[in-house]
Simulated assay, not measured.
Amino acid sequence: MAKSERKRALRGRAGRMKGGRGSGRATAGHVRLWGRHPVEAALKNPARQHRKLWATREGLDSLDGELPPDFPLEFAEVTDLARLVAKDAPHQGLVLECEPLEDVFLDAVATGDPDRPVIILDQVTDPHNVGAILRSAAAFGAACIITQDRHAPPESGVVAKSASGALETVPWVRVVNLARALDDLAAAGYWRIGMTGEAEQTLAEALPGGAVALVMGAEGDGMRHNIAAHCDAHARLPISSAIESLNVSNAAAIALYAASTRSR
């Protein structure tokens, strides 16, 4: 069956959202994603368990690929979907409720591959920044991102939208103790570089030839003292004195690019 025929068949059997009632929050214990790239990536991710897709007809047509015949699909109007997501969220006619991703463990993804850096976020709590860093991590082939569970945003539609699909492809390791995770990375052969504007050497000067872990602190406060003490070196980006600092997601993107070009 052709893609267009499949979608016409889906239209015939899908339910219709009644009354447009919605709390804007996912059912307890589940995650609600919106927008074409996050939803499409989640639908293609075999590790995802899906509960329901709400879609406009145009939103469904924008997807690449076909839904299984028994997929729980419900058509809705644009205004109805707006009630299912955060205020003013750009849902693009697609809202998907699904199970959270399974936990990822550090030893399963940090392999010491020198071409695949690891990025550690110390108390970076803004979901837009974490999502943007996931997107850069996907672009530059990072092995994973690591956050401390208590000081990072939960998996959410905001993170997924900012990640533009990368939430489904880049492992996100949540740990209880970030300092211990840095010790584990050192034992696995990683050189740990803490990014700070006060460092004497630039990142280019600090980058080794082997596996590297880039540690980014929160905007304003930077890395905590204990986390900085667990780094093998500190480095800065050589930005102009015309500006004091970069947004953490921008800095992470530049650092990941620098790490990815060492062997090129």
Rank of each mutant, 00 (worst) to 15 (best):
F71R: 07
N226I: 07
S245R: 09
G24Q: 14
V215M: 00
R116F: 00
A218R: 09
D70W: 06
E77P: 05
G24I: 13
P72G: 08
H91V: 10
R36C: 06
D122F: 00
P72K: 13
V39D: 11
R25W: 14
D126N: 14
R25N: 14
A41I: 09
L81Y: 01
P154N: 06
K3Y: 09
D221G: 11
K7S: 04
D64E: 14
W34E: 11
P171R: 14
M195D: 03
H30E: 12
L94V: 09
E205F: 03
G157V: 14
R236H: 02
V118E: 04
R36T: 14
A211D: 13
D88T: 13
A142L: 10
L203Q: 00
T79N: 13
V159R: 13
R236I: 02
A28T: 11
I119M: 11
L96V: 06
A28R: 15
T27P: 13
L214Q: 02
L101S: 06
D107T: 08
A258S: 04
A108P: 02
A252K: 10
F140A: 03
R51Y: 08
A2R: 15
D88P: 04
N250M: 11
V109W: 02
P154L: 05
M223P: 00
K52N: 11
N129V: 06
M1R: 15
P46I: 12
T147M: 04
E244S: 08
A108D: 14
A179E: 02
V175W: 01
S245T: 11
D184K: 12
P238W: 04
R16P: 02
R16G: 04
V173H: 00
R51F: 07
Q201G: 03
S164D: 10
N247T: 10
L63H: 11
